[in-house]
Amino acid sequence: MILAGRAHKFSDDVNTDYIISGKYKFKTLDMKELAKHVMEDLDPDFYRKVAPGDFIVAGANFGCGSSREQAPLAIKHANVAAVLAKSFARIFYRNAINTGLPVLECDTDGIEPGDELTVDPAAGVITNRTKGTVIPAKPLPPVMIKILNDGGLAAHFRKYGGFNFD
């Protein structure tokens, strides 16, 4: 799985209420509808600006706050290919993998808004084609790659009847 798209940049401590505001989250489980409001409080035009396959690039502690899965699901349904951040809040990280959204930890300082990136989640390699740099990321453990490739944890379960760590 190799992903390619442009970077949309955000700062540290982007909490789950910024990703998808509570006022929408409690109203609907329709992800297509929720996706229209992703990151709205930080960038009201985000949904219109993001092209399928683009990346959210952020600082430290991305996704802190609540345990609700609407946060990664809304990002995924906004057609964002992956989130790159210096670090993730751990529940968001799990939820992203479990719902099939690739997340990679790396140094994001050298990425600017609009940079063209290529991302290989399994190898943990990010190429900034605009700047001509290669950024190493923490490679995802094989079990997470497997869950992602299966399309999330529920699909992984249906396939193997449980966790497949081998």
Partner: peptide
């Protein structure tokens, strides 16, 4: 704390 899908898996398997 975990998310809903983790909870679903734990409800199914106890793991």
């Amino acid at each position: 704390g975990v998310g809903s899908t983790d909870l679903a898996a734990a409800m199914a398997l106890g793991e």
